[in-house]
Nucleic acid binder design. Sequence first.
DNA 1: CCTCTAGTTTACGTTAACGTCAACTTTGAT
DNA 2: ATCAAAGTTGACGTTAACGTAAACTAGAGG
Lengths: 137, 137
Amino acid sequence: MPTRRYSISDLASDFDITTRTIRFYEEKGLLNPERKGQTRIYSAADRIKLKLILRGKRLGLSLEDSKDIIEMYHPEHDNSPQLIKLIDKIRERRRLIKEQLRQQLQDLNDMISELDQAEERCVEALNDMQKKPSKTA
Amino acid sequence: MPTRRYSISDLASDFDITTRTIRFYEEKGLLNPERKGQTRIYSAADRIKLKLILRGKRLGLSLEDSKDIIEMYHPEHDNSPQLIKLIDKIRERRRLIKEQLRQQLQDLNDMISELDQAEERCVEALNDMQKKPSKTA
DNA sequence: CCTCTAGTTTACGTTAACGTCAACTTTGAT
DNA sequence: ATCAAAGTTGACGTTAACGTAAACTAGAGG
């Protein structure tokens, strides 16, 4: 079994965040590491959760959203009505993600092509200035 | 000439934001509408700037970033060293955007496929519960 | 034993991006 | 004229996501 353990500063340096950040995520209920005495000990699963949180951040999700998503991956295997609700939540979340994907893709492509045009205009302006030596008296 | 004008609430309802938000963007130097008396009058160009700001927000840009980008589209046509610096800024920004595009694409696809797997696990768990009636005493 | 390093809790501070009054003024419609 | 709707300027409040500092503890090494 790959029962790897990590200290809080291990994870901090791995993901290039501060220990404060990691404790903050715990405060918000996104992580629940073991304790040896009062020192936190993180498992491989905790590491993955952290990864999910950070990916969520890159996508603009709130910590609350990431918390939701984490619970989808690590459900308390309850009874079947709970499971059915969970499946619905997963499908809804996937819908949202896909819509976001579509929108962001379009936004990014639009922005890139507009930057291209802006650059072109600048280059032309530069060329024009080379020919007419300028009006500066 | 399409010299369309907009009131602040026109734009607010068009983009589904509050007038406070629009005034806030002006406070931060992203908009500079004309005034008729003390009332703000927005042009078509202002409308476009607003659109750029909101797109920036969807992409996770800060207002400062959006301000930068707006100035790339509406440069004060200065002298050539300024123009050259501007071109560099545009290229750098495009680089950032492209990297972000790449990253977000991967993140979103990863997340979707993980949601697919999570759903599958739930469905299987449900099926298992149908067969073995459960252990609940 | 002493000190250094890493860890902990508690608590107040900070920044961005607005929200929410309050207290006016301006203006088109009746 | 008046009255409601829309506009304006302060100014303080709020939320998320941490930063920062103080004061303490526990283990490892010389």
